[in-house]
């Protein structure tokens, strides 16, 4: 064991899916995916109220227009954007020959892209939610 570790770096670097960025992005991908799926069921159900009556739909949508749901929507968009960009990263790891080599750097690109889109979205959305 001792000779084996001495030939490698002492700090574990992780692999594609075991430890560090590879594993935690996989965990986050699962959690966000499950969250989005549960929301999707509710989202199709409430949108179906347009088939009942305009006022039924408007009444339910009106109950969503408060800061608590507004913050939930911001979190949901954050989850969707992470899941989308990390999904592209997973596809690049699987299908691009250099993907596994750069999977860690690609996670930082996912984070950068996420911040880049979340900032203008949060400005727009939170001013709607809290600006009345």
């Amino acid at each position: 064991m001792a000779t084996e570790t001495s030939t490698r770096s002492v700090v574990p670097q992780g692999t594609l899916y075991r430890g560090r960025e590879g594993m935690w992005s996989w965990v986050a991908h699962r959690i966000t995916g499950l969250l989005i799926f549960v929301f999707l069921l509710v989202h199709v159900l409430d949108t179906s109220l347009v088939r009942v009556a305009p006022e039924a739909y408007n009444a339910v949508i009106e109950t969503y227009k408060n800061p608590v749901v507004g913050l939930g929507e911001a979190g949901l968009v954050g989850a969707v954007l992470f899941h989308a960009f990390n999904g592209i990263r997973v596809m690049l790891v699987d299908f691009w020959s250099q993907g596994p080599r750069f999977h860690r750097q690609m996670l930082w690109a996912v984070g950068a892209l996420w911040v880049l889109l979340m900032v203008p979205f949060l400005v727009r959305h939170l001013s709607n939610v809290f600006g009345g």
């Binding site: 949108t47 347009v50 305009p54 006022e55 739909y57 408007n58 949508i61 227009k65 507004g70 929507e73 727009r124 959305h125 709607n128 939610v129």
Partner: peptide
């Protein structure tokens, strides 16, 4: 944005 969502929007 989200404030514009109602039956008319859909």
């Amino acid at each position: 944005g989200i404030s514009g969502l109602d039956f008319g929007f859909v």
